[in-house]
Simulated assay, not measured.
Amino acid sequence: MQRKIIHIDMDAFYASVEQRDHPEYRGKPIAVGGLPEGRGGVVATASYEARKFGVRSAMPSKKALELCPQIIFVVPRFDIYQQVSGQIREIFARYTDLIEPLSLDEAFLDVTEDKQKIASAIDIATAIRNTIRTELNLTASAGISINKFLAKIASDMKKPDGQTFIGPSRVERFMEELPVEKFFGVGKVTAAKMHALGLFTGADIKKKEKAELVRHFGKAGHFYYHIARGIDDRPVQPDRELKSLAAEDTFPADLTRLEEMIPELQSLAETVTHRLAQNEVKGRTVTVKIKYADFRQITRSRTLARATDDGAAILQTATELLAASGLEDVRIRLLGIAISNFEGGDGPEDTPGPDDTGSSQLKLFYDQL
């Protein structure tokens, strides 16, 4: 039996909650996240009014202020977002018990067998979105398809406050026409590499043998091979265990000095701290990922005495790990920070992690899903 999967994604969730609860913010560009004073403030969510100016999540607050001088910065209220997220989850549960939250503001639902016997996944998605609007005065977007990957792509196609259905008969053509930039885990660098190999759409990827894709893209090649054919057999997992939270960034120009790298680490640490608060977890193991200009990649990890969600502690540990990796005569194109070993776990201490020739964004995608 083909699955009926819905991906629900709240629209600018944190910002929308703030605009709902504070009338003075409605219709104005707001950013929920770090204030631009000092160093390292990062936007957690921007309202759609701010997005018109180019403000985006994970953007440094100072950059957001440059793009939109009239932007209003709002201190996050994660306890409220958690409460609202619980209300949204309760709405989901009226239709199915197979709910896999990805964060406070998005989740997968398997409605192959729905509680209310509606049968149509399109109608269920519409009903859920209408209920969220009526009961919570918030909007959500939805993607409906036969697997997680397609549902997640579909939910982003008509944002905000829309939904998209990719039916079984449409899957093959949809994936063949999908630009490689739309594949999850394909950023600017990987897209450029694909273009150099003559890969511009899913149809181009389908022409390649799996072994060739693996040779060029490592473990991610397996993913590209299958998803270009619309194949994603992962089930919705209600009891999915969160294993790690991470953030990374590829730089327009290679970094060569520690003083250039510390502000980038600070921005990453802010993003990871937001995600820890969002998921209400603390972690003991801090991992720094380093990718060099020649695409060689290493990780360095340290396990702390006690679990933390403190951005300053995460930044300090990450900086020490980076400095100890050896920065003489290096050119670094990407840095990342990951937190794992959540409350009660064990982990390695000051040990190098294995090189991963696959896409780290793809790894994060699977960790989150």
Score class of each variant (00 low, 15 high):
Ser103Ile: 08
Ala228His: 02
Thr299Cys: 01
Glu280Ile: 04
Asp350Tyr: 12
Met261Ser: 11
Ala151His: 03
Tyr81Glu: 05
Ile122Phe: 14
Arg275Lys: 15
Met194Asn: 05
Leu35Gln: 11
Gly344Gln: 11
Ala324Phe: 01
Val214Trp: 02
Ala196Cys: 06
Ile290Thr: 09
Val330Met: 04
His274Phe: 14
Arg77Asn: 15
Ala192Cys: 01
Asn137Val: 10
Val55Glu: 02
Ser120Asp: 15
Ala228Cys: 14
Val180Lys: 10
Tyr95Cys: 00
Val214Phe: 04
Leu335Lys: 04
Met157Cys: 08
Ala127Gln: 15
Phe149Asn: 09
Arg26Leu: 09
Ser16Val: 07
Pro263Cys: 11
Glu349Val: 14
Ala191Gly: 08
Pro235Trp: 10
Ala269Tyr: 01
Leu334Asp: 03
Arg129Tyr: 02
Arg275Ala: 13
Glu241Leu: 15
Val111Asn: 12
Pro352Val: 05
Ser301Leu: 07
Pro160Gly: 01
Phe174Asn: 00
Val17Tyr: 00
Gly347Gln: 06
Lys115Glu: 03
Ile205Met: 08
Gly187Gln: 03
Lys210Cys: 04
Asn130Val: 07
Lys52Ser: 13
Leu98Cys: 10
Tyr366Asn: 14
Met157Phe: 11
Asp204Lys: 14
Gly38Gln: 02
Asp114Tyr: 08
Glu113Met: 15
Ala246Gly: 09
Leu255Phe: 09
Lys289Leu: 08
Glu135Ala: 15
Tyr48Thr: 10
Asn130Tyr: 08
Gly162Met: 05
Ile314Gln: 02
Glu260Lys: 05
Asp346Ile: 07
